[in-house]
Design a protein around this nucleic acid. Sequence first.
DNA 1: ATGAAAGCGCTAACAA
DNA 2: TTGTTAGCGCTTTCAT
Lengths: 342, 342
Amino acid sequence: MTVVRPPTLRDVAQRAGVHPATASRALNPQTRSLVNEATASRVLKVAESLGYRPNPIARSLKTARSGTVGLVIPDLTNPLFPPIVRGIEDVLGPAGYNAWIVNTDNDPDREQSQVDALRSRHVEGLIVATARLQHPLLERLHAEGVRMVLINRRLASGEIPSVTADDARGIATSVEHLVSLGHRRIAHLAGPQNTSTGLVRQQAFRQAVRDQGLPEGPDLIAFCDSWTEIEGARGLRSLLDAGSDFTAVVAGNDLLALGCYDVFAERSIDCPQDLSVVGFNDMPIIDKLRPPLTSVRVPHYEVGAEAARMLLEGLADPQRHPRSVLLPLTLAVRQSTASPAR
Amino acid sequence: MTVVRPPTLRDVAQRAGVHPATASRALNPQTRSLVNEATASRVLKVAESLGYRPNPIARSLKTARSGTVGLVIPDLTNPLFPPIVRGIEDVLGPAGYNAWIVNTDNDPDREQSQVDALRSRHVEGLIVATARLQHPLLERLHAEGVRMVLINRRLASGEIPSVTADDARGIATSVEHLVSLGHRRIAHLAGPQNTSTGLVRQQAFRQAVRDQGLPEGPDLIAFCDSWTEIEGARGLRSLLDAGSDFTAVVAGNDLLALGCYDVFAERSIDCPQDLSVVGFNDMPIIDKLRPPLTSVRVPHYEVGAEAARMLLEGLADPQRHPRSVLLPLTLAVRQSTASPAR
DNA sequence: ATGAAAGCGCTAACAA
DNA sequence: TTGTTAGCGCTTTCAT
């Protein structure tokens, strides 16, 4: 029994009566112009009829380019990431690249081993969504010359190119929205301060409050240790238990806002009658909550697409000066925000 | 300026004073026993000190194994899939394999081109979540000997190994749950009948209704053309507009159930007071709806993990007889189901 | 137990 | 415009 070995370039060349090198040139759009038009089309035809598929492994070995990039995210099951991944793949695919996705679960050890695995796979670059403000691993990779683009987060040093949403503007817009509804005392659920998003949003909140001439103070900010529902609930409870007086909450992200809903149920708080809430990220299905959550919409797909574009540019032209991109965002206004009752 | 070329096997061999072949044997756990223990550990040490990483591209070219499998899904942003993907990757990773993910958007042309892309990448097998009952592409691939495992869905012919949840049991459990609450007239929102899930669940619903001695009839089943919120809403509206009398709805999946929520809001229907609803899949965040949705919980992570295991087994031993696996599921009871008011 | 030699499939100097 | 030649980094007979 003969196992059908997939046709190779030699097979095509032989059948077309040319040298393998000629066949190679004819088959590669980049070099097709170097070959006689008639010869080229003959080669193409033979390749077609044989069902020839170039072997990317062999090509990679020769060209020392793997055609792959690594994508490092905390957890694919966080609904934030799938749209980003699609944005990335929709840009990489047509460029002949593919992405290896690894999940770190926010565990530095796992992150290290996953990045090792990617490097063993000889990825040409990295798109990283797990940055913390201080991040020795990423700094080291950068120093080693590994091509990277950060998404959503940035490093304190700011030397690595990044694609992030304009978080400060998003928070300011949220505060302005609440003020326009008549709110004066607004609280903030701040995310982890060792992440750029957590820090930037918290600082932006204070700035916005100051800009609007609203009352401020430590009793109007609760710090959450992680971006989770549990922590969001804990944060809101601590504000309420401290007896702080406020009519609206700007949550650091949607998960923290989700935690607020648990507290509403638990303490019979009417949202938005008693308390308005604004989230951040506009996660899918968040509009299905009762009441639907007003949230800052981040163009996740575009974040991914832009990051992929930047990485490809960097790979194509290593001299190119790295840049960082801030994407604009909008506020999706829903029923979780309304004028205060008092 | 010297560009630092990553060390190759030759470099390691040279430094260790052995032939590359010996170094290769020493470095590969499979063949380490063929080499003198002292020599082996010397090679290992040199490799370590040089930061040597075997080049998987070169290895693949030699061994004709790419170490990759393709994962074909409709859309990663459907929250159903991320847990499946994680299950798959958690099994493939330790086995030295990785998955290429492609999205088809349920477009047959796109599916064809994406599968072509995967085959060009020389994936060793496929995990496919996009099966329809009649699926020429998949039948053709199977006939060509492409290793595959289907997940969630199956083909009518049933020849391709699959990992699916026990849908019929899930639907029966839903119906039994509603009956135990006192419901007698139960309607069904059926999914697309050209998918195994849509068909099986619809048939299971009719069987369960019969088994329970409940009233049945065409006015208690609405057919939806796609697994979307829009279609779910349309389905429920058509049942209501037809004047059918029912106190509970078994939706073909969570998205169809989500559509029901839109109709509740639109027609001031009180759920679960006026109407109970059960979903299928227990998507994340579905417990955050108001009211939280009762849904059949499918072990998505396990589906992915099991599919990956089956595929690896098939790759390791092509003779192995293909099998299909049915995973058990449970009902997550929440506030969208209650005893009927009348 | 180790070395020699060949080759996986492709591309890129270079030569003609 | 095409062919020659060499080699990417590794594994695997085969020989020693």
